[in-house]
């Protein structure tokens, strides 16, 4: 009975995090972008600095008409947002927040599980791009596919470097094995991982697949209402997951001064700082052109990731 209650609590916790954290990131994005661009941002909904803007957006999305174009592949079109969204929920259960089992569920090959499941999310964009029967959507979907192929590799290789350093694939195990100098040792890998993750989320400056000035909104052009909202939620849930993963793999998760009883605060703090960086990058950099985007992945990130693996291997063998 206690076990069942425990599992239910964990499921509820994961669902709550999944529904609340992306909204927090979204609201932060509104405000940070506004301040960085010297404007106000949403100020009215809810009274205090427009804190309820995203709730209002949600209400609006829920009551908008849901349009499926006559030419679209109906079933695939309707399913696509769910496929894009759910992988991020699944990933959240495996991310450790604090020591001593403060994690949704300890998955023994957590690193592989997380990377594999995150890859599924892109299928949602592909389904949307193909099923919309729209030229812009198709172009956006194909760009998404190309981007996934280019950036999945550096991400995998950088993650492999951490697995080598820790000697385990379990995410809590990786954090438990962390020492402060790992961040310096794995610095290149961390940068590669974070950059590649940004590209997989199609966040600026890697937002060629949804480039609004040339292909409307890429694969999501034909979506309205609730289904569109789910795609947006997937993007922000993706930011949360990417930042949490970078924290766990490269920044030592719950390690920090006075982390004895409040390690989870460090995890959340580091994740929040990274999310801020994600927003900052969006405001700071212009969009990469499609060929520049491919070139960056294949000629810069992959060689860097391979070099990091070599460094990790040599240091590990020499010191052991």
């Amino acid at each position: 009975m206690n076990d069942a209650l425990d599992v239910v609590l964990r499921l509820v916790a994961v669902l709550v995090v999944f529904l609340v954290f992306p909204l927090l990131v979204g609201q932060t994005e509104h405000k940070v972008m506004a301040h960085m661009q010297g404007r106000l941002g949403p100020m009215y909904a809810g009274g205090f600095h427009g804190w309820a803007q995203l709730v209002a957006d949600g209400v609006k999305f829920a009551q908008k008409e849901d349009i499926v174009p006559a030419d679209a592949d109906r079933r695939v079109f309707q399913l696509a947002p769910a496929v894009a969204l759910l992988p991020y929920l699944l990933v959240l259960i495996a991310i450790p927040v604090g020591p001593r089992g403060f994690v949704g569920e300890t998955v023994d090959a957590g690193l592989i599980f997380v990377l594999a499941v995150m890859g599924i999310g892109v299928l949602g964009s592909l389904m949307a791009g193909w099923a919309s029967a729209n030229k812009f959507s198709l172009l956006g979907g194909l760009r998404t596919a190309a981007q996934l192929m280019a950036y999945e590799l550096p991400m995998l290789l950088a993650a492999a470097s951490v697995a080598m350093a820790a000697g385990t694939l379990s995410l809590p195990g990786i954090v438990a094995g962390y020492h402060w100098w790992w961040t310096l040792w794995q610095l290149v890998g961390g940068l590669v991982f974070f950059t590649a993750g940004l590209a997989e989320l199609q966040r600026p400056p890697f937002d060629m697949p949804v480039a609004d000035s040339e292909i409307i909104f890429g694969a999501y052009t034909e979506y309205t209402g609730l289904r569109f909202a789910l795609f947006l939620l997937a993007e922000y849930a993706g930011i949360v997951v990417l930042c949490a993963l970078t924290t766990v793999l490269f920044l030592g998760g719950w390690h920090g001064p006075w982390s004895g009883s409040a390690g989870w605060v460090w995890t959340l703090l580091k994740t929040a700082v990274l999310a801020f960086v994600v927003i900052w990058l969006r405001v700071s950099y212009p969009r990469l052109r499609e060929d520049q985007l491919q070139k960056l992945a294949w000629t810069v990130l992959i060689p860097l990731a391979l070099a990091q693996i070599a460094l990790t291997g040599v240091v590990k063998v020499v010191t052991s």
């Binding site: 499921l11 669902l15 929920l89 259960i93 495996a94 998955v107």
Partner: peptide
């Protein structure tokens, strides 16, 4: 448990 999360998501 991971499977249960998937069920919750669906």
């Amino acid at each position: 448990v991971v499977g249960l999360v998937a069920v919750v998501g669906v």
